[in-house]
Design a protein around this nucleic acid. Structure first.
Lengths: 225, 225
DNA sequence: CCGACTTCTGTGCGTCCGTTCAAGAAGTAC
DNA sequence: GTACTTCTTGAACGGACGCACAGAAGTCGG
C-alpha cells in the first residue's frame, strides 16, 4: 500500500510541527516511551479506513496493518470510533490545506478544474487492491451520517469549510470578470461541492476517465463569464 | 416507518404484474404456501437497508422489522447479500421508471429541476429516525464498490441507464433549442449524475434547503440555451 | 537502587454476527 | 388416505467483533 502522502501532494509542514511539539511534550513525561510514531500510525490507519470504510475495518485489521498491538492502539487513540474520527479530521486538514493553496491563484478556473479532476486522477492509481476509494469525508457521510452526531458535526464543518473557501475564490474571480455573476458565489460553491462529491462517489464504479473529464469541462465552462 | 411507496410516487403497475405472474407460478407448485407476501417483504427490507446501510442492518433487524423468521428469509431470498442486491435492483427499477416518465416532457428543464430536487424533498421528510437516507444506489457504491463485483455491476449499469435516459432527453431539448449545445448531451448527463449523487450524499448532513435549491438553479441555468 | 509512572504484550471475556439444520406444520397430487 | 413438497420455527454453531485487564518492560526523579 502506498503511503498517505502519495495521494495528496500538499505540504506537511503543519504535521511535522505538530508531531515535533508532541514529541517535546512526550520527552518531558515520565514512563516507558511509546515505541511507535503516533502520527505515522494515524496516517496508515487513515489509509486503511479510507480504503475499507469504518465498519469493514476491524481492530484486527488495524493491528495487522499497523504492526501495533491492540492495547497500544486503545491507549494511544481510545476506542475504534475515536480513532476513526481523528483520522477523518486529519484527512480533512490535509485536504483543506491543499484546497486553500491551490485556489489562491488567478486565473481561478484552471485551478478549479485541477481540484475537480483530483478524484479522477486518484481513481487512475487504483489498479492495486486496498487503495483508497473516493473522498473519506464523503464515505463517512454515507456510512455514519446522521446516526453518529460527532461524525455529522465533522462532516458538516468540512462541507462548510469547502464552500467557504471555494465561494471566496469565486467571489474574487467574479470581481475580476473571470467567472459569471449570474449566480452568487455561494450557490456556485455549493454546486461544486455536489459535483466533487458525486464524482468521488461515482468514480468508484470505474467509469471511463474521458467521460468524467468531459463532464467537468462542462461544469467549468458553465462558470465562465 | 413509512412504506416504500411513500418515497417514490411512480407507477407500480410493473410490480403488480410481476407479483401476479409470480403468484400464478406459485399456485401451480405443490407444497406448503408461503405465509408472507414476498414483494411486500422485499419492499420493507429495502426501506431498512436504505435507512441503515448493508453492513449495519443485521439479520435480526430484518427478522424483527419484517415479522418473518430467519429460515423463511433465507428460503425466500438466499443469504443477506443476495437479499440486499435484490432490494437495490428493485430500488433502481422504480427510480428508472420514475425518471423515464418524468423526463418525457417539453420543456425539459422544469422536469429536470424536479428530478434534481427530489433528494432535497426527501430530506425534508427526515424528521423521524430510521428514514431512508440519500440514494440507495449511491449508498451501495460507497459501501460495496468496487470490492463486491456483483454490486459494482448493478451500480455501474444503473449509472449508465441514468446517463442514457438523461442524455436522450437532453439531446431532444438541444434540438428544440431549449438546452445549450456547447457541450454534448452525454457530458451534460454525466455532470447531472454527479450533481444528483453529490446532492443525495451531502444532504444527509442536513444542510439548509435554500442553499441546495440555489445550487440546483445554478446548474439548471447553466444548461439553458 | 528504588518507587512512581507509562507503555507493551497477550490472553480472555461477553456479545453479536451470518448461517445452518432438524423437526413439525400446512398445503398439493394422486 | 398417503406420499411428497415446501414453508415455519427455534435452537445452535463457529467465528469475529470491540474491548478490558494483568503482568512484563522500560524510563523517570530521587
Amino acid at each position: 500500500m502506498r503511503p498517505f502522502k502519495k495521494y495528496c501532494n500538499g505540504s506537511y509542514d503543519f504535521l511535522n510541527a505538530e508531531s515535533r511539539s508532541r514529541s517535546i511534550e512526550h520527552v518531558a513525561r515520565t514512563g516507558r516511551p511509546r515505541e511507535f510514531d503516533r502520527e505515522q500510525t494515524l496516517e496508515r490507519a487513515l489509509e486503511l479506513f479510507w480504503s475499507r470504510g469504518y465498519g469493514a475495518t476491524s481492530i484486527q485489521d488495524l493491528v495487522d496493518a499497523l504492526a501495533v498491538e491492540r492495547g497500544s492502539l486503545y491507549g494511544a487513540f481510545g476506542d475504534k470510533r475515536r480513532f476513526y474520527l481523528e483520522a477523518v479530521r486529519l484527512y480533512w486538514e490535509v485536504y483543506e490545506r491543499h484546497l486553500t493553496t491551490a485556489l489562491d491563484t488567478s486565473p481561478l478556473l484552471p485551478a478549479l478544474r485541477e481540484i475537480l479532476t483530483h478524484p479522477v486522477r486518484l481513481d487512475e492509481l487504483i489498479s492495486d487492491v486496498g487503495v483508497p476509494q473516493g473522498c473519506l469525508v464523503g464515505n463517512t457521510t454515507a456510512e455514519l451520517v446522521p446516526q453518529d452526531s460527532e461524525a455529522t458535526e465533522i462532516v458538516t464543518r468540512s462541507y462548510r469549510r469547502f464552500t467557504d473557501i471555494v465561494a471566496g475564490a469565486l467571489r474574487r474571480a467574479q470581481a475580476a470578470g473571470e467567472v459569471t455573476d449570474t449566480h452568487s458565489p455561494e450557490a456556485q460553491a455549493q454546486l461544486l461541492l455536489y459535483i466533487v462529491q458525486g464524482l468521488s462517489l461515482v468514480s468508484r464504479a470505474g467509469l471511463g476517465r474521458p467521460a468524467a473529464l468531459a463532464a467537468i469541462d462542462t461544469a467549468v465552462d458553465g462558470l465562465r463569464a
